[in-house]
Design a binder for these strands. Sequence first.
RNA 1: CGGGGCGUAGCGCAGCCUGGUAGCGCGCCUGGUUUGGGUCCAGGAGGUCGGAGGUUCGAAUCCUCUCGCCCCGACCA
Length: 437
Amino acid sequence: MKLSNYFLPVQRNKPQEAQIISHQLMLQTGMINAEVSGIYSWLPLGLRVLKKVESFIRQGMEEIQCHELLMPTVQPAELWHKTGRYNVYGQETLRFLDRHNRELLYGPTNEDMVTEIFKRAIKSYKHLPCRLFQIQWKFRDEIRPRFGVMRGREFLMKDGYSFDLTPQQAEETYWLFLKTYVRIFAQMGLKVIPVKAPTGPIGGDLSHEFHIVADTGESTLYYDPEYDNLDLNQADAVDKLLDLYAAEEEMHDPSSHAEPVNQARGIEVGHIFHFGDKYTKVLDAAVANNDGKQVFPLGSSYGIGVGRLVAATIEANHDESGIKWPVQLAPFHIGLIALGVKDQNVLDQSTALYQKLSNLGLEVLFDDSDESPGSKFNRMDLIGLPYQLILGPKSLKNDEVEIKERVTGDRHTLSTESAILFLTDKLRAVMTTDRYD
RNA sequence: CGGGGCGUAGCGCAGCCUGGUAGCGCGCCUGGUUUGGGUCCAGGAGGUCGGAGGUUCGAAUCCUCUCGCCCCGACCA
């Protein structure tokens, strides 16, 4: 992507309306645009990150035979009356009438509707387990929206649902999702701690929250220090993790585990619940078991706040200069900075490099603007792409380019060819031929 | 909803107390200059001072009402 053709409204001043760092940086880098309180547009740069989060989630879900569907944002209030949740959710639910005076609402979650869909389709235990998910906009009319997309009213959520025949199977499914969640987050380059959690209005008795550790987190976590030594990309790490103590403040029980225990602030980016036959029963979604008897399948739901995850990633990965994206979620992998583009040689060389890297399946943001070096460096640091590739008349004179690693600040002076090798080596895991620019 | 703060150019702000018809920095446009950490110079465009009403010869400024945004609390992916 050439910067000269891109939509990237970076602001030099910090927007004063934002208090926490992720909100500031998202506004300042032109990832999002505030529309009304708690409702945001996702601009091209932010949308790229959002889409990447989505694709990690999709992949993880499909791996455990959880299939994507898409339910509407608008639901009939009637359905919510049937499950009794119309009043439970109360003012959080945005309600309205259509022209025929039919009561509608903007869905805050979808247990009710997905159970109806399940009911219409599944009549036999032979078709269990059944696992469905969607990535869809939700609306909860929060009393006080705050912190940008972190606690917005409209938000993008992955919501998954499972139906099983027996309690044992339902519980197995629950743990399967839990492990899958840990893996999905690890693949995104994020350290997430699953903690025991209270269940809230969705109901149920088995529940975990997934937290990214960050100082600005709204929750307090307690966890076994051993957790910090786990490499979650290792095959057996997830099993080890399940043996370690971790609890959210409300569920924390100091007497139930050995000392010592770490305490940290966490941002809740996922939440899973097992609630049994709560919805299948009330909506009469029974299936035949192998005795031909009608039984109510047991359900769980599994949420990930997709937009919040983007903000939380920034909370956990930034410095004074800006964002420090993990490569997996970075809107682009490489920021190519051409210094002195009026020099034809610089322009030619950087354009050639841009094309070469793009053809290799790397996502390159090519700063081809005619601005002063400092201005370009600062903007690139702010946006926080993992690798900066810098070339100008000075370096080209020696047939060299410079690579700066955003996270560590390390710099390497290399020949063009070595630089390409360096980058393809570092970025091999995220290289793709399926790019969208 | 209770408590607090703020709405003046795209962004960040000053002016308001003590009324006299709007200013600064950045950004933007033009020309030149500079090119490895927000270059420098010159010229230029851009604002019904959130909105309505009132006081006054005169309101960004004083008064009343209203809308919006942010922060703290109750609530939460």
